[in-house]
Each structure stands twice: as structure tokens, then as C-alpha cells.
Computed example of a mutant assay.
Amino acid sequence: MGNLTWLYAKAALTGFTRSGSTLPDAVRDLRVDVDREHLTAYNRVCGFGVRDELPVTYPHVLAFPSQIELMTGPGFPFPLPGLVHVANRITQLRPLRADEPLDVKVQLGNLRPHERGRQFDVVSSVSVDGERVWVDVSTYLRLGGGSGDGSAREREEPPKPTGGWRVGGDVGRRYAEVSGDRNPIHLHALTARAFGFPRAIAHGMWSKARCVAAFEGRLPDAFTVDVRFKAPILLPGKVDFSAAPTADGWRFALWSKKPHLEGVISG
């Protein structure tokens, strides 16, 4: 996995001069052959078993360098620092295998207003032999200038936990190694404090992957897993995991004193 540190440095140096009201009409295409050692390392960090079938969240890290290239490239209107990853939806149309060459496509779209600012989607897809088999939609929020007219939110009550996880202080660094996402807020308390966090925080996509790993062996070949990221998980920490069956899948959540993630798996 390529080191994206230079792109984060570029974003820090030039990002705050960015402005605009449209997204660039740019696309990144690449062919990827899965590195089995990298896949094994990812599986271990996120809690998946080691096997030839790719976890549904794994192609996200293959597309991630192209996502960052688009968000630091010409015409992108927002500074990368300060963007908030608020949601991620992945649809798998069939299982993907480690021995399949993957054609990955990444593009930006759907810039729209939000009550707290503006949001947009980064859409990544994977095709095998011309057949689209996997789609990932990550939604990011740029804070500021929103309508602020959202209705008052009721206090949320935590669901009954079905398990609990201790999240080590090194999870941010370990996931950064396999994902390429070396955002300073995930790496060390000192660098996280520079961005307003008391300690380093876990990657949202790590927390999603860890939740999906809890369902391993119980999911159909084709399904969608949709999550909303609520509040960051401070490292180290402890979170409660809850899961409950629904008519066509599962509902799940991560909580501590506040909700961290809420998600739905539907077949």
C-alpha cells in the first residue's frame, strides 16, 4: 500500500486556499492485483479470518489512494483537513476472490446542502471482466454555512450490548499501515491534539470493518452494509457492540458513553 503522507502534507500546505461550489469531473481508473500478504495483514487488524474471499470492506483500502488523489487534485473545492467522514455504504453483488484482477474506478459526485454545511460522495466501484461486482459510497461533510434548521434531536438511548471490545491505543497506527490512511488524527495523541482531539481516534472504516467481521460466516453472497459515523472512538478505549436481526439482515451499533457508529446490513 503506497504511502500517502506526501498527499496529506500537500493538503495541509495548500488546502486552506481552496474554494468553489462544484466538484471536478475527474475519474481515476486502476487495475489491482491483490497482495495476499497485505490482505492477511488487513484481516488481522480488522478481525477477519484469513481466507481467499475478500472482506466486503477490503476493496475500500484499494480505492483509497485514488480517493485522496481526487480530493487533493485540481478543482477540488474543499480543504482535506476538516472534512468529516459521516457515512459509508458498500454493496457487494457477489463475493470477490483474492486471485481476481480488480478494475477499480473512483469519482466524486452529488454535492448537496447539509444543515451543518455541504456534503458530497466519493463513489468507488470494482469490476471483474467487465462486470461490476462491488460499489462503495463514502459521504463527507464540509462544515460551515449550512442551513442549521434541522429539527431538535432526542437523546438517544444505547441498545442492549451483545459484546464488548477493548480498542488498543495502537489501532490507529496499525490500520494506517494497511489502509494508507495516515491522517495525523489517527496516529498519536500529540498530532490528534493539534486538530482538537484529546487523544488519537480510530478510523471510521476500521470500526465498520470490525463490526462486519463480527458477522463473518452469517452473511449472504450479495448484501449491502450501510453505516453512519456518529462520534469518534478515542484511543485506547472500550466500546459496546450490539447486533439484532431484522426482516432482511441485521442492525448493529457501537456505543460507549455516546453512539460511535450505527449500521444496517440488508440482503
Rank of each mutant, 00 (worst) to 15 (best):
2 G>W: 00
3 N>I: 07
4 L>D: 00
6 W>T: 08
6 W>K: 11
9 A>S: 06
10 K>Q: 07
11 A>G: 07
12 A>P: 07
20 G>M: 12
26 A>C: 09
27 V>F: 01
30 L>A: 12
33 D>G: 06
33 D>K: 11
37 E>R: 15
40 T>Q: 10
41 A>R: 10
47 G>C: 08
47 G>I: 13
48 F>K: 00
51 R>W: 07
53 E>G: 12
54 L>Q: 03
54 L>F: 11
58 Y>T: 03
58 Y>M: 04
58 Y>L: 03
59 P>E: 03
59 P>R: 02
59 P>G: 05
59 P>V: 01
59 P>N: 02
60 H>S: 03
72 T>E: 04
73 G>C: 15
80 L>I: 10
81 P>I: 02
88 N>Y: 07
89 R>K: 14
90 I>C: 03
90 I>S: 04
96 L>C: 11
96 L>M: 10
97 R>E: 07
100 E>R: 14
102 L>S: 06
104 V>Y: 02
105 K>G: 11
105 K>Y: 03
106 V>I: 07
107 Q>T: 11
108 L>T: 04
113 P>N: 10
121 D>G: 10
123 V>Q: 05
123 V>P: 00
123 V>D: 00
124 S>G: 09
127 S>Y: 01
130 G>R: 12
132 R>T: 10
133 V>E: 00
137 V>N: 02
141 L>K: 08
144 G>V: 11
145 G>S: 07
150 G>M: 09
151 S>W: 08
153 R>T: 13
161 P>A: 08
162 T>G: 15
163 G>L: 13
168 G>A: 13
170 D>R: 11
175 Y>D: 01
176 A>S: 15
178 V>I: 13
178 V>K: 03
179 S>F: 12
181 D>V: 13
182 R>K: 08
183 N>S: 13
184 P>S: 03
188 H>C: 04
192 A>T: 10
195 F>K: 12
196 G>Q: 02
197 F>T: 06
205 M>S: 08
211 C>M: 14
215 F>C: 05
217 G>D: 10
217 G>P: 14
223 F>G: 07
225 V>D: 04
228 R>F: 09
228 R>Y: 06
233 I>W: 02
233 I>D: 01
235 L>E: 03
235 L>K: 03
235 L>A: 10
238 K>D: 14
241 F>P: 05
247 A>W: 06
249 G>M: 09
250 W>H: 08
250 W>Q: 00
251 R>L: 02
251 R>N: 06
258 K>A: 13
